[in-house]
Amino acid sequence: MTDIALVRVTFDTAAEADRIARHAIGERLAACVNIDRPCTSIFRWRDVVETAEEVTATFKTTITLASALAERIAALHRYDQPVIESWPVAVDTAVAQWIDDATHA
C-alpha cells in the first residue's frame, strides 16, 4: 500500500465546489474530486451558533502536493476562513500511480 492524501473542504454551493475542483484538476494539484450531496453543518462563528447547508468535496492528491492544493483552495474559496482538512491514506499501488500520473505533467 502507498500513501496519498485526501483533502476535504466544505463549500456553500455545489457550483463553487465544481469550480474549484476543476481548477485543482486543471492545474494538476488533484487527480480526482468527489463532490457529495448537501449536508447540514452546525458551527460556532463569531460567537454565534450557526446552521448552514453545505457541500463537501474530497480531493485526491499526493502527499507532496497536499499543502499546495490547500493553499490554492483557500485562495479560490469564498469563505473568510475555509476549513481545509488533509490526511494521508493508504491505497494500492495502481491507484497511487494513477494519482501520481494525473498530478504530474
Rank of each mutant, 00 (worst) to 15 (best):
S67T: 10
P82H: 07
I63Y: 05
A94C: 11
V48C: 08
A94N: 09
E50D: 11
Q81V: 15
R8F: 10
V91M: 03
I20L: 09
M1T: 06
Y79Q: 09
W45D: 10
I99P: 02
H23P: 01
Q97S: 14
S41D: 09
I25Y: 00
M1R: 12
V9A: 04
I35G: 14
R37M: 13
T62P: 02
F43I: 10
E54L: 12
H104C: 08
A31Y: 03
I25C: 03
T51A: 09
L29G: 06
R19D: 11
R72A: 07
T40V: 15
E54A: 12
P82R: 07
R22P: 01
T56D: 12
A30N: 04
I73M: 02
T51N: 08
V33M: 03
R46S: 10
W45V: 13
P38F: 13
A96F: 11
A75L: 14
L76H: 11
H77V: 03
D47R: 14
V89G: 02
V95I: 13
T13L: 08
V49H: 03
E53A: 15
A66L: 00
D80K: 12
A14C: 12
T61N: 02
D18A: 15
R28D: 00
K60T: 03
R37A: 15
T93C: 05
K60C: 06
D101H: 11
R44N: 13
H77E: 07
E50G: 08
F59V: 12
A30Y: 05
P88D: 04
M1Y: 10
A66S: 11
I4M: 06
Q81E: 13
R72I: 04
V33W: 04
T61F: 03
T51P: 01
V83Q: 13
L76K: 09
A90V: 10
Y79I: 00
V89A: 08
T61Y: 00
D3R: 13
V48H: 13
H104P: 08
I35T: 14
E50M: 05
Y79K: 08
R8M: 12
V33L: 05
P88M: 05
I84H: 06
A14H: 13
A66N: 01
I99C: 01
V83C: 13
A66G: 01
A75M: 12
T2G: 05
A74W: 01
D47L: 08
V7I: 05
I63T: 09
V55L: 12
A75P: 10
A5W: 05
T64H: 10
I73T: 00
M1A: 08
R46I: 01
V33E: 02
N34F: 09
R78C: 12
A14I: 09
L29T: 00
R44Q: 15
I63H: 03
F43S: 07
I42M: 15
D80A: 13
R46Y: 00
E50C: 07
V9F: 04
V7P: 02
E71S: 14
A17T: 08
V91T: 10
E27D: 13
R72K: 13
L6S: 06
T58V: 15
T2L: 15
V49T: 14
F43A: 12
I99G: 01
R72M: 05
R19Y: 07
M1H: 07
